[in-house]
């Protein structure tokens, strides 16, 4: 019973939602909007669930004195500070904005900027002309990299000006993005879309049910 009810709900709503896409009638559209609104109700529950799970996890860590348990206190300091300032005074409060601009912004930007370092090390390791295909990938990558920055055009126009390509590295990069990149991407997107449809049918028909967990 614990499994049958969600499976029936999944089947009924799956089929109904598909058909609302083919019917412009107001009944069908109202139903569609209604179901979407129900889905929105889940968000506040997710917030409660998130807070509870987070508190549980870190309380357990502190209680059991697991490795680096001291950092769990920092989680509580962060949560309490932002809730105490943000809930009564709103996000436009100066202190809240200060925390946002001087704590969250630099921390997020730091994590994002790590990508520059990781891209360099990954490129250094991955682009080796081991085979013909790898060499092709290497040359393409070099052209796109140079086409992405103005210095690429400068070098191209100085060193490779004898080539019959007028638009330089940026033109070559644009051609690669518009043609080989787009064709390969479309192939992958088609495969992924068919995979999504197939997976959705398996879910609607109740063949794929691992996500329901245990219990009969």
């Amino acid at each position: 019973m614990r499994r049958q009810v969600p499976l029936i709900l999944c089947f009924v709503f799956g089929i109904v939602m598909i058909f609302t896409q083919f019917s412009p009638h107001s009944v069908s559209q109202t139903l569609y909007q209604e179901v979407i609104s129900w889905a929105l109700i889940i968000s506040p529950f997710a917030l409660v669930l998130a807070t509870t799970t987070l508190i549980q996890t870190h309380v357990t860590r502190i209680r059991r004195r697991t490795e680096h348990w001291q950092y769990s206190f920092l989680v509580f300091v962060g949560i309490i500070t932002m809730v105490v300032i943000g809930v009564p005074f709103g996000p436009q409060n100066q202190v809240f904005e200060w925390f946002y601009t001087h704590v969250q912004v630099p921390m997020d930007a730091t994590m994002f900027s790590l990508l520059a370092f990781f891209i360099a090390s990954a490129a250094y390791r991955a682009f080796r002309a081991r085979t013909f295909e790898a060499s092709l990938l290497l040359i393409t990558a070099l052209i796109v990299m140079m086409g992405n920055v103005p210095v690429g055009d400068l070098i191209w126009n100085t060193v490779l000006s004898w080539l019959p390509l007028e638009d330089g590295a940026s033109g070559a990069r644009q051609w690669i993005l518009n043609n080989p990149n787009l064709s390969a991407r479309r192939g992958i997107i088609l495969g992924v879309s068919l995979g999504v449809i197939s997976q959705s049918i398996r879910i609607i028909l109740g063949i794929e049910r691992t996500y329901l967990g245990g219990g009969d």
């Binding site: 891209i119 360099a120 490129a123 140079m146 920055v149």
Partner: peptide
């Protein structure tokens, strides 16, 4: 960014 790209090309 131009210089970083040049560096990556050099590293490759």
């Amino acid at each position: 960014e131009s210089f970083v790209h040049l560096l990556i090309v050099g590293l490759v």
